[in-house]
C-alpha cells in the first residue's frame, strides 16, 4: 500500500499545477476572454455606472461604468507578474551573492553578509514602503521596491547552504582535481544547495503577491486606470457598503491566486525538500 500522504500530494499537485496553468492562460488570453477589453485600459461608460452583476456584466460595473470582470481578468497581467518578477530577480541576485559569500568565506563573506544585514536590519515592509514612495509609482517601481527588500533572504539562505556544502569531501575532491572556481560553483556547489532555495522561492510567490497588492492598496503601485487588483480593492473602499461587487471580485482574485501559489509552494516542498518527510500515515 502507498502512503495516503502521497496520494493527497498528487491531488494537491494537480490542483496547484492546474490552477497555475489557468492563471497563466487567463493572463495570456485576457484580451480574448474579456468581454470589454477597452474597459481595462482606460475607457469609461457613464451610461452604466455601478450596475450590479448581470448577464452583460458578470461582475457588475464600477464607478466609471467599466466592466469589473474584464478588469479582473486583465489584473492577472499585473499582480502575479510583479510577484514572479520580484521572486525571480531576488532569487538570481540573492543566489549570486549567497554562493560567492559561502564559497569563498573570509572577508568576502563578511563584507557581503554585513551588506545583507544592512538590508535585513530595516523592517522589510517599511523599506518597501519607503522605496515605493520614492520611486515612480507603477509596476516597475513596485517590482524594484520589493526586490530590494526580498533578495537578502535568499542571499542568507544560499550562503548557509553553500557553506555547509563547501566543507564536504566531494568539494575538496573538486579542488584536488584542480577544477576552477566557476566550474566547482556551478556544477557542484549550486545544484546541491538549490533545493531549499527552490522551495522557498515557490512559497514566496504568493506572499509577494499579497505584499504587492497591499502596496498597491496604499496607492504605491500601479496608478489608475490600471486594473491592478490591490488598487481596485482600494478604490472600492467607499463602495463596500453599497456596491459590494467592486471590491469583492478583485479581492477574491488576489485570494485565489495567492492560494494557488501557496499550494504550489507546498507541492514543491513535498517533492523536493529531502528534510520534509510526509508524515508516515501508512496502513499496514
Amino acid at each position: 500500500m502507498r502512503a495516503r500522504g502521497a496520494r493527497g500530494g498528487r491531488t494537491a499537485l494537480v490542483l496547484a499545477l492546474g490552477g497555475a496553468g489557468a492563471i497563466v492562460l487567463v493572463a495570456l488570453l485576457a484580451p480574448v476572454l474579456a468581454p470589454y477589453p477597452e474597459d481595462a485600459t482606460g475607457a469609461a461608460e457613464t451610461a452604466q455606472l455601478l450596475r450590479p452583476p448581470s448577464a452583460a456584466h458578470w461582475f457588475g460595473t464600477d464607478e466609471l461604468g467599466r466592466d469589473v470582470f474584464s478588469r479582473v481578468l486583465y489584473g492577472a497581467r499585473i499582480g502575479p507578474v510583479v510577484a514572479v518578477a520580484v521572486v525571480t530577480v531576488s532569487l538570481v541576485v540573492g543566489t549570486v551573492i549567497g554562493v560567492v559569500a559561502g564559497y569563498f568565506g573570509g572577508w568576502i563573506d563578511e563584507l557581503l553578509m554585513r551588506l545583507t544585514d544592512v538590508f535585513l536590519a530595516v523592517p522589510a515592509l517599511l523599506l518597501a514602503l519607503a522605496l515605493a514612495t520614492v520611486l515612480a509609482p507603477g509596476p516597475v517601481g513596485l517590482t524594484v521596491a520589493l526586490t530590494v527588500t526580498w533578495w537578502p533572504w535568499y542571499a542568507r539562505l544560499v550562503r548557509g547552504e553553500t557553506a555547509s556544502v563547501v566543507g564536504r569531501p566531494y568539494i575538496e575532491a573538486c579542488r584536488a582535481l584542480g577544477l576552477g572556481h566557476r566550474r566547482t560553483l556551478v556544477r557542484h556547489v549550486l545544484p546541491n544547495a538549490s533545493t531549499p532555495l527552490l522551495v522557498q522561492a515557490s512559497t514566496d510567490v504568493g506572499g509577494v503577491l499579497l505584499v504587492a497588492s497591499g502596496l498597491s492598496f496604499l496607492g504605491l503601485g500601479p496608478q489608475p486606470p490600471t486594473p491592478d487588483w490591490g488598487l481596485m480593492v482600494e478604490q472600492s473602499q467607499n463602495y463596500f457598503t453599497t456596491h459590494w461587487w467592486l471590491g469583492t471580485f478583485p479581492g477574491a482574485a488576489i485570494m485565489l491566486v495567492a492560494g494557488v501559489c501557496f499550494l504550489l509552494g507546498d507541492v514543491v516542498r513535498d517533492r523536493f525538500d529531502p528534510r520534509h518527510v510526509p508524515r508516515p500515515t501508512q496502513r499496514a
Binding site: V211, G214, F217, T241, T248, G251, I254, M255
Partner: peptide, 15 residues
C-alpha cells in the same frame, strides 16, 4: 507581514 496584509484585505468585507 503577510498575515497583516491578508487581514487588511479581509477587514474591508466585515466593515
Amino acid at each position: 507581514r503577510v498575515v497583516a496584509i491578508v487581514a487588511a484585505l479581509a477587514i474591508s468585507l466585515p466593515a
